[in-house]
Amino acid sequence: MNQPATAAERGLASCHLCMKLASEDSHRCPRCGTRLHLRKTASIQRTLALLVTAAILYAPANILPIMVTDQLGQPIESTILGGVILLMQLGSIPIAAIIFIASVLVPLSKLLIMFYLCWSVSYGPPVNQRQRTVLYRITEFIGKWSMLDVFVVAILVALVQLGDLLVIRPGGAALAFAGVVMVTILAAESFDPRLMWDKGQSNNEAEQQ
């Protein structure tokens, strides 16, 4: 099967900003003046670095309390997992499931998938090209929901300010969790999915020869 030649094979690079195909030799986009790169520079390294940061931030995000409820001057601290367990004990399984998925499952799976993609782009077997694409799409999809927890806290803090009776304050985990979400977004951004297919391309070509 004869595949059409890629832009890269023809010595053309797409502008990051305006997507114009320009010659690889020209350093700047002839249309918008953006620096031209064939692929995102140091994509894997950046992605990995941000993923490591996210992993580090994930620890305090789960250990520290995400929300502090001052009820009649009695502060009650709740962590993410503590809240999930409490909701489960109270019988609110659906809410517990939502919080668990949004706060634990999504960011964690995104992290792991990204790690896997970074590894597989460099060292992975080339046969899993389609699988990698599916995984990448999953990260794209679930990434939208990963700020859910932070939003919940932000809304509660803004709404529940009943003076001495009941006050909700954000805990240290809220900041860490926001950091995790943002860093993973940046990691996903810095990941160049074309790298996955570059490898597949070469493999395909090798197969064809």
Partner: peptide, 20 residues
């Protein structure tokens, strides 16, 4: 392969975490 400067970010995060 050159080490990208972006590795400063996880390093800082790790140092802050360790300090905590």
């Amino acid at each position: 392969r050159k080490l990208s400067g972006v590795w400063i970010i996880p390093l800082v995060a790790a140092v802050i975490g360790l300090w905590m």
